[in-house]
Amino acid sequence: MNKIYADADAAVADIRDGATLMLGGFGLCGIPEHCIAALVRKGVRDLTCISNNAGVDDFGIGLMLKGRQVRKMISSYVGENAEFERQLLSGELEVELIPQGTLASRCMAAGYGMPAIYTPAGVGTEVAEGKECREFGGKTYLLEMAFDADFALVKAWKADRMGNLVFKATARNFNPLMAMAGKITVAEVEELVEPGELDPNTIHVPGIYVQRLVVGTHFEKRIEQRTVRTPLP
């Protein structure tokens, strides 16, 4: 069993124009920055990207937007990206905004082999337009379909070569869900350890969900909003 790829370029080499991708991360926290850089180098286009956010102008998915590689974004919040807003308003970029919990649950459904979920989020709003509604116990819910993505690109803290993954702090976010949901999952990790070194009790995603591993050499891990405590005067 060898899931280890030489680098991110090799791991994304077969991602073709028009592919649907899931990209883990919340804001810039826990994003697969090496895979994104490799996609930018590769110049693949017409991508549909499922990701909670769209990066910032010069980092994360923002780099792919700058190169006009993205045809459609499916996200819950896209506030921090001027180029994104420009492409959205000019009609170059198609955007589907969905509630954050719905995004997570549609990933989860895919990873658990369920075709759809019912959620109350978005009932009575624009999000509900054209969707099936159903009442359970007197409350209305929307039918939301599981995502169908060709590739999931995720970022983990540690992995062994079996593909077992461990995430760190809030960099976990959508990563385990997307890792489970992708037809082919590429996990870029900070640290690769020998099988047996990770306690089986603490593994967040079992290796069966992970097809490819890339060990990142230098993670930038940019901070979007650096906030610190101010000492009392």
Partner: peptide, 10 residues
């Protein structure tokens, strides 16, 4: 302004 709903709708 189209920033999105984030987790607010949930």
């Amino acid at each position: 302004m189209v920033k999105g709903m984030g987790g607010a709708m949930d």
